[in-house]
Design a protein around this nucleic acid. Structure first.
Lengths: 139, 139
DNA sequence: TTAGAATCTAGAGTGTGATCTAGGTCAAGC
DNA sequence: GCTTGACCTAGATCACACTCTAGATTCTAA
């Protein structure tokens, strides 16, 4: 953007958040922002730093597996102002549990995968790799 | 299924692996098995225990985020017999790295989310929750 | 022997989350 | 003034991984 204050164009915000401009417009259609994003006289979106901060949290929530639908619920709660903090808390606690479960699941899978890797590595190093897994699984 | 030996019907395998029968047929179309699944005279699939074991590993790989395309590459390597163990190892090592990275990412997000939870919890308990996040983000 | 459950194939449909297209409009620098 | 690049909308399309449909066939058990 450029001129006074700190209004940010959609391109600026895309750069700042890593989200594409298409994604930002999509987020807006989906009502994932905490407010109506204002426009210039010419109809262009003008974002503020708080929008960027919110998007950065959204990124964290999204990349930790929160679906858009849940993010939308959270955004709606925040948008509707003070008074529902217990609900927001419950939503975040639930998500925290989900993330912990996911980490546990991944860790369990990792152990199995690592076991396979160790086995293959040993066999490949020893040149005894034949029959690691063909008709009947061995490793 | 039921009669002699241990041939398993698609329904048996679905039960044993948690995959749906549709998914099993899909896997076959996608060449994700380590062999051609034999058929009865009537054209029904007859699976063996090794197929189930392979599917259980597939489940681990899938649920740890391996895309079907990669699983397919791995299956193709195993199917094409001994001699490519180094490639299989490389594929698994790569996936192991991916999973570790994912866990690290989730752990980082978790910390941030947990931070939010703690903040909200404190405010909700104290009844001082107002303004936690409205026009200007505070927490 | 016959009903009903399970299976078969080929192909269409679904949900999620973007991402892109077409056909413009707006704005900044030369 | 004009070029150029960023931006606009609405809607189509994509990728992934299933999941289901339709209509026919096969198997099992009463």
């Amino acid at each position: 953007m450029g001129r006074g204050a700190d209004g940010l164009s959609i391109g600026d915000v895309a750069k700042a958040t890593g989200l594409g401009v298409h994604a930002l417009r999509f987020f807006e259609r989906e009502e994932l922002f905490l407010r109506e994003i204002p426009r210039t006289a010419g109809g262009r979106r003008v974002y503020g730093p708080a929008d960027v901060e919110w998007l950065l949290l959204c990124n964290r929530l999204r990349e930790s597996g929160m679906p858009i639908a849940t993010l939308k619920r959270f955004a709606r709660l925040v948008r509707s102002g003070p008074g529902n903090e217990a609900e927001r808390l419950a939503l975040l606690e639930e998500h925290e549990r989900t993330v912990r479960d996911r980490i546990a699941e991944l860790t369990a899978s990792l152990e199995i995968i690592h076991g396979k890797v160790v086995t293959y590595r040993k066999h490949v190093e020893e040149g005894t790799a034949a029959g690691l897994w063909s008709p009947a699984p061995t490793a």
